[in-house]
Structure formats: structure tokens, C-alpha cells
Design a protein around this nucleic acid. Structure first.
Lengths: 239, 239
DNA sequence: AAACTCGGAGAACAGTTGTTAACTGCATGG
DNA sequence: CCATGCAGTTAACAACTGTTCTCCGAGTTT
């Protein structure tokens, strides 16, 4: 609050936000590449031409939406990463995993539209938006890696290995958020309120990186792999 | 070849296939919900009205495309699963993992457009298509689970646990295929031919369910978890 | 060989789209 | 306090969309 910005720019950002909100709402039931300019302005309650005062085209709005969804989360993450950096190892891994998954679930609960947008457009039809999402996720990955490097267990790990591990965590987070979104919608067919917990349980197990041991003794497991897939070789190469 | 089907129906399925092919080609650069009926018929070289002889609307064509991409692969999988069921445990897990990943890579190489379509529309804007993809993937999961159940290592595992593990494998496969697609496009910025191998290596490591041990002794690892994420709690709940 | 089927073409429709141009009114800076 | 800048509006444009009706001609059946 160095200087209160004028009434002029305040109103401008207000309609800009109205455009973003309208677009995000419409995007819950369609994808960006099918979203029309007039459709958005109509939902936002402004004239179609007002759109051009804020965005070049819909792809531009899409990139802005990516930054709204991930950018703010990113800065918050950066600020808080260092603050809690040296509390590592305070509790055991199981608690940390549960807390992490619950955090993801909370984010999905409070920002469902943003999560849906990111999940949908990550592989969507608009190149610029895909690139923006990829860039933001790469930043997340980098920061998670840096945090890993600070923990004592990471001693002796190669930089590339830590980065790859961080990438897996980020990907896992996105996938879990998306799964929670699909199963978490109350009143959906077949998926009761237990669906969210089932997704969470699966996510925890996956983070644990070791499937829950069988109800027998604590024997070491060599879990089955989809070996028969290999037999599909002829099909895949042919046709 | 019980009876050679007439010239009439043959020509019909020919233009139907032309429509599917044209749509699949156009879908490499946009998403289904933005794909126009006239756009497809124009690319297929038929009149716009001919579309209705084969599909009710674009969502219907999308479902047909899902079945073309996953259905045939599914039947092939079913046929070959039992044939190789009892060869389990013939080689060690490492080889099987490498073979599996290479199989995924081969499928992506030979059917890139189909893979892109599935990855894009899995979370896309058309409800019916999402449901169709989800259904096909559920079938895959079921069959992988059945195969797991046949392997001796699975003795004592609960049905639900096997199903969850199978689901992880299927999800991992889709994600790996998508990653290979992004990184595998030759002549892309920043991603040389080594990108595909990097993705494959990461996929193998993930299938191994245990990050590569550090270059020290074979000490047991408690790998770092994104604990600082928990500090984001206030951000997530607020705002 | 005649009657019928039916996949595809052609023309026309009302509606919607993105984009441009010229305008209006108000906050702003001198 | 007045002149400038600029967010937003109105009107109009050509282009394109999905959909319907009508018709044609070749494959199929009897």
C-alpha cells in the first residue's frame, strides 16, 4: 500500500476480474478452446468490445487464469517454504503424508473451479495455456526439489534424482486434486461421500511409495507387475 | 468372413472412417468441444449433412473415437492376458518393468494421435466422452487386477488392495504415455531425442516404486516428503 | 427388370461468432 | 478548471455455425 491506486485503474481491474470470474464459471462445463469471447462478456455483464481492453484473445485470458490459479499459490509457497524449512523430521513420515493429502483436499474444496481448469487445460487444446501451466508446475517442482535438498535424508543424492522425485510429487498432487474433484462432487451417481476418502487413502498410499502390506506377517513384497502387457507387442507395432 | 458385407455398407463404413480420421487429425491441435461439424466434414471431403448418417452429434463421434482408440487395445489385451498368465516370475522384475515401459513407448510411437486424444479428453469438456474414457480405463484396471490376482505374490492380498494397485498402474500408464507424447515430438524446443529416454527412465523408476538408492551404501531410505506444504494451510483455507 | 432403400449432395434458414469503427462520459494531470 | 486519456458502449460487417428439407442415383431386394 505504497500509494492507493486511482479510481480509474481500480474500476478497470474490477471488470477484468469480472471477465476472469465469468470465464472460470463457464469453464466448469466446457473447455477453453470452445469458449467464445461474446459468451464471456455476456456472462460478465459488459459489452463484447470491452474484452479487448484487457486481453488480446481467449488464449491470453487463459494464461491470466493460469496465473490466478497457480501464481498466487506459488508465491505463497515460496514465502512459507523457508519459514518451515528446519522443522523437518519433527514428526514421523506417516503424519506428514496425511497432512499433505489433507492440504490438497482442502485446496480442492476451496478452489474447485481453479483446480478443474488446471486439470482440464493442462493437456487442453490451447498451446499457450498448456505452456503456462507447464511453466508454473516446473517452478513448483524446482521449489520442492530445493526443499528436499535441505533435508538431511537427501544427503548424497544427485541433483537430477531430487528433481525427478520432486516432479513425481508435483504430478501426484495434480492427479490427486483432479481425482478428488471427480469423486468429491456430492450427489454424484455412484460416488457417495466416501469417494473423497477413498481417493485420499489411495493418494496416501501412493505417497508412501509402498503398497499397504498384506494382513500376513511383515514379509517383504515383490509386488506384481503388468507383465502380460508385453505380449501386446505385436498388436502395438502392427495395425 | 462369414459373409462378405455388401458394397453398400462397405462404402458407408468407409466414409464413416474418413470422418473419424479427419476428426482425429483436427483434434491434434484443438479439443473436441471446439471441433465443428462442418469442419470435420470439410476435412473428410463429404457434405455437411452426411455427418448425420453416422453420428448424432460431435459428442457421439467422440465416443466412437474413444472406442477406436481404447476398445481395440482392450480386446487385444483380454485375448493375450490369459495366454501369458502362467509365464509369471520367469525373469526378474527389472526386466519386466523395462519391457512394460518400452511397450508403452511403442504404442505412443505408433498411435500418437489416439494417445493425444485420450489424454486431452480424459478431463476435457465433453461429459459423454469423459465417461466413455473412464469406463474403458475401468475395464483395463479390472483386467490388470485379475492378472495380479493370478500371480503367486498376490496371495493374501485383499481384493480392494489389488484393484487399487491395478488402478495405479493404469493411471501411471496414461500419464507416461502423455509425457512421452509431449517430450517425444522431434524438433521441439529444448527437448531433444533424449527427452523420451528421460521420461522412460522416470517411468521405470516410478514403477519400481522406490527411487534409485543414493550412491552410498545400501542404507534404507526414508525419502523426504513435501512437509512445508502443510504450512500453506492458512492460505488454502483463507482467501 | 421393376420397386425400393438409403447414403450422400445441394440449397437455404436463422443464429452466432470475432472484429472494426466511431461515439460517450468520466477520472486524471497540468 | 479545462484539455487529455481511456474504459466501456453502440452499431454494423462478413463469415461461419448447426440443422432441416428436398432431391438424386446407385446398390439391393424381389
Amino acid at each position: 500500500m505504497s500509494h492507493t491506486l486511482g479510481v480509474r485503474q481500480a474500476q478497470k481491474q474490477k471488470t477484468r476480474q469480472a471477465l476472469l470470474d465469468a470465464a472460470l464459471r463457464l469453464l466448469e462445463e466446457q473447455s477453453l478452446s470452445s469458449l467464445g469471447l461474446r459468451e464471456v462478456t455476456r456472462a460478465a455483464g459488459v459489452a463484447p468490445t470491452a474484452f479487448y481492453r484487457h486481453f488480446r484473445d481467449m488464449a491470453d485470458l487463459g494464461v491470466a487464469l493460469v496465473e490466478e490459479a497457480l501464481g498466487s499459490l506459488h508465491t505463497a509457497l515460496t514465502a512459507l517454504l523457508s519459514a518451515t524449512g528446519d522443522r523437518a523430521g519433527e514428526d514421523d513420515g506417516e503424519e506428514r503424508i496425511a497432512a499433505t493429502v489433507e492440504l490438497i483436499a482442502a485446496y480442492v474444496r476451496t478452489h474447485p473451479a481453479h483446480v478443474r481448469f488446471i486439470a482440464r487445460e493442462q493437456h487442453g487444446g490451447v498451446q499457450a495455456v498448456r505452456a503456462a501451466i507447464g511453466g508454473q508446475l516446473a517452478l513448483f517442482t524446482q521449489e520442492v526439489k530445493d526443499q528436499f535438498a535441505r533435508e538431511p535424508e537427501a544427503a548424497g543424492w544427485a541433483e537430477d534424482d531430487l528433481l525427478m522425485l520432486a516432479g513425481m510429487y508435483v504430478d501426484h498432487t495434480v492427479m490427486t486434486a483432479s481425482a478428488l474433484l471427480e469423486g468429491g462432487a456430492a450427489g454424484e451417481a455412484g460416488a457417495g461421500p466416501g469417494a473423497a476418502e477413498r481417493v485420499a487413502a489411495r493418494s496416501r498410499r501412493q505417497l508412501r511409495r509402498q503398497p499397504r502390506p498384506p494382513p500376513l506377517a511383515g514379509r517383504t513384497l515383490t509386488p506384481p507387475h503388468p507383465d502380460p502387457l508385453r505380449a501386446l507387442d505385436s498388436y502395438v507395432r502392427g495395425n
